[in-house]
């Protein structure tokens, strides 16, 4: 099965950047149009102060050009003709987006120039440093590698658990049972994964169009928060554990009976611990997944049941040997 594991970051346009960050960055489009379809080539901001003075060495044109009070103040100190000529120089060097911070009024001449060149101008009320800081988060999220996996994800006892397996094995029904036990649905059937590059962790969420809905065979579509309350859903959760359902017949002898067999599933280059749970008539999957999550939590906290039992048995064996020797 293909995981669609692209390790490289996602590419995105200015239009997507504006849509994702409009609220958080208190940002509006001053000059948009076709320029908004430009790709954000390097997902970070650049203060173009030095370039505006006429030094173009190492000018970071692939980034978003952030104009703060310093840059704007300098521009205002120039005569209008030079001011526009300097900006034109930056555009000629392929700058494609300028963001005016601190609620600076964008001069009409700049707007006209941008419109002619198909360059995007954005404006924000945020202070420059505040914008640069918040902008990093928005850009990182957009850039994060993403993939979609067939799996139902539930937050179980604080652990993000994705259940996967052939259709008809009861993933959604198990999720339903888990929800009734006070756990929260993250995504039904199709889980969108996002990689946090810095933390090397995966985060699971539902696709926007179907968030909070589930399909239960025989019942149809249900809106989870309406039926079970708002605590029954979770918008995003780290993916901590993958539980793979398999028909007992398909597993044959290859089944971990001890719990010390470490298996992994790899998505976007990140390893996630995996448990394979055999599905057979009469097995209470809800209970099994809940126990698996709790056992996982315990293991992360440092307790290893199989290892502990092993040590106890060895100690007993030692004692018995010494007992017979004396």
């Amino acid at each position: 099965m293909a995981d669609g594991n692209s390790i490289t970051g996602s590419s995105f346009t200015l239009r997507q950047f504006v849509a994702a960050g409009a609220e958080r960055l208190k940002m509006e489009v001053v000059v948009g149009g076709r320029g908004l379809d430009h790709q954000v080539l390097e997902p970070m901001t650049n203060r173009p102060g030095l370039a505006l003075t006429g030094f173009y060495g190492h000018f970071a044109w692939p980034r978003l050009q952030l104009v703060g009070l310093a840059e704007n103040g300098y521009m205002e100190s120039l005569d209008p003709k030079t001011r526009i000529a300097r900006l034109q120089e930056l555009i000629d060097r392929r700058a494609y987006c300028f963001i005016y911070a601190c609620g600076i009024e964008v001069p009409e001449a700049v707007k006209a120039l941008a419109e002619k060149a198909g360059v995007t101008i954005l404006a924000t009320k945020l202070l420059t440093r505040e914008f640069a800081h918040q902008c990093t988060f928005v850009l990182e999220e957009l850039r994060a590698p993403k993939t979609r996996i067939y799996g139902t994800t539930v937050e179980v006892a604080g652990i993000g658990v994705m259940m996967e397996g052939d259709s008809g094995l009861g993933k959604s029904e198990t999720a339903l049972g888990l929800i009734k036990h006070g756990n929260a649905l993250v995504a039904d059937d199709l889980t969108c994964l996002r990689k946090d590059i810095a933390a090397n962790k995966l985060f699971a969420r539902a696709c926007d169009s179907t968030r909070n809905y589930m399909e239960i065979r025989g019942i149809g579509l249900i809106h989870v928060p309406s039926v079970f309350g708002v605590t029954a859903v979770c918008r995003e959760k780290s993916l901590d554990l993958v539980v793979t359902f398999r028909r007992l017949n398909d597993i044959k002898g290859d089944l971990d009976r001890v719990g010390d067999d470490r298996r992994w599933r790899t998505f976007l280059g990140v390893n996630v611990p995996q448990l394979v749970i055999p599905v057979a008539a009469g097995r209470d999957l809800v209970n099994l997944v809940e126990t698996a999550a709790q056992q996982f939590k315990l293991r992360v906290a440092g307790y290893d049941a199989a290892g502990d039992l092993d040590r106890r048995l060895k100690r007993l064996a030692d004692e018995m040997r010494h007992g017979t020797a004396s």
């Binding site: 979609r148 259709s167 199709l190």
Partner: peptide, 16 residues
């Protein structure tokens, strides 16, 4: 470029 199973209602709807 997004491919989903044709047997899943939820997945089909995410194609928008």
């Amino acid at each position: 470029g997004v491919e989903v199973s044709g047997k899943s209602i939820m997945a089909l709807m995410t194609l928008e």
